[in-house]
Nucleic acid binder design. Structure first.
Lengths: 208, 208
DNA sequence: ATTATAAGTGAGTAATCACTCATAATATCA
DNA sequence: TGATATTATGAGTGATTACTCACTTATAAT
């Protein structure tokens, strides 16, 4: 019988599964890393936050850096897949609205993770590559056909694709990562509102 | 007579001025910090890069953190002032073009500094404040009257100021900090071209 | 029950780090 | 030319850190 199955009246400690421990450590590591940066965090502190002994970390991850990679690597793609069921009946404009909202929500939901990713991407090549493949690259390749469709239909102007996307991504990223911190925007604004404003600006511009 | 003044034929070491030494250290520190981050850099390494003894660093800066602050603090405002001579004859649109170009050049010229600043702003309040006051805040306050003038003249739509600026700043920052790295944009494109494209997009939008 | 395996622990370790300080080198002043 | 002040030096220091390992505890297999 599996020992974790049913409560019996013996008063004995029940151990979490190895997988659960791993998750505890990952969760704690994300928290600490996001707070203090990779080099500013200690394995002792992470262990404390995860409520495990320091040695336990190294049973699950052979080095601190491997822990960082594990924190960043897998989660990224989770939220991206949804969009891949192509709503092929959408107009390009409708697609952009959906995409924008999805990304803004994704960023808000994983703010610590993404912030950490951008910060550490500066110093670790692996992270940089992961960031490009995971967030920026995926976004670009999903958008591209819709962009081109929009141009064909005459809905969009035939602007150069990559520079245009760079600006678009910049708007989104900056909103999620720095917006509320630096510009003191009212946080009670919903993502919905913010997304609508950004889309309006992106599609129609500031000029009358 | 000042000892550093004229070359004489005695073969003796000439000491740099204290100020010059300070600059050497600051320059080296910027390089190393930008490369590896604050916590990833060691004072020994900075000393080596500056070609001074490690102790010398601490004669000029009492702590490593003070060195970081000194690296970031003063330079920021240098490039900003130019714009303050108000070209009051400009149209709002012309102002935005000038502003955009100025900021993009400023970012390109100080890429390491600004990249470092954004990275460390996550972890040090002083840096965060300095970033807001120095780059983002200044930009916002310079733009505002021109934005309002543009709305009054009927050149611009009456969009909410801060969210609009957030997107604008996002486009600029992302271009400077991540654009070439992540999106593989052709680096032979001049800033001029990039700025013109960004302004076009910002003013008129993607939609036809 | 007994044994075998997997998982957890935390004191210990070698390396590294920011910072100090006694000494030396250079510059300034009398 | 000395006397004094300023700046530079780098070996030394205590604190911190990532990682190890001998050992304990829990679970699975026989």
């Amino acid at each position: 019988m599996k020992s974790n199955e049913v409560s019996n009246n013996r008063e004995i400690p029940r151990r979490k599964t190895a997988e659960q421990r791993r998750q505890d450590i990952l969760e704690a590591a994300l928290k600490i890393f996001a707070e203090k940066g990779y080099n500013g965090s200690t394995t002792a502190e992470i262990a404390r936050a995860a409520e495990v002994a320091e040695g336990t970390i190294f049973r699950h991850f052979s080095t601190k850096k491997e822990l960082l990679i594990a924190v960043l690597e897998p989660k990224i793609l989770e939220g991206l897949i949804k969009l891949d069921k192509e709503y092929s009946e959408d107009t390009p404009t409708e697609f952009f609205r959906r995409f924008l909202k999805n990304r803004m929500e994704l960023i808000k939901d994983n703010e610590a993770l993404i912030r950490l990713m951008f910060a550490e991407a500066q110093y670790h090549i692996e992270v940089r590559e992961s960031l490009f493949k995971g967030i920026l690259g995926q976004g670009i390749s999903i958008i591209r056909p819709w962009f081109e469709k929009g141009v064909e239909l005459g809905d969009f102007r035939a602007l150069p694709f990559l520079p245009t996307m760079q600006s678009f991504m910049g708007m989104i990223m900056f909103y999620g990562l720095f917006g509320n911190v630096f510009l003191g925007l009212s946080p009670e604004k919903t993502i919905e509102e913010a997304a609508d404003h950004m889309l309006d600006l992106f599609l129609h511009g500031l000029a009358r």
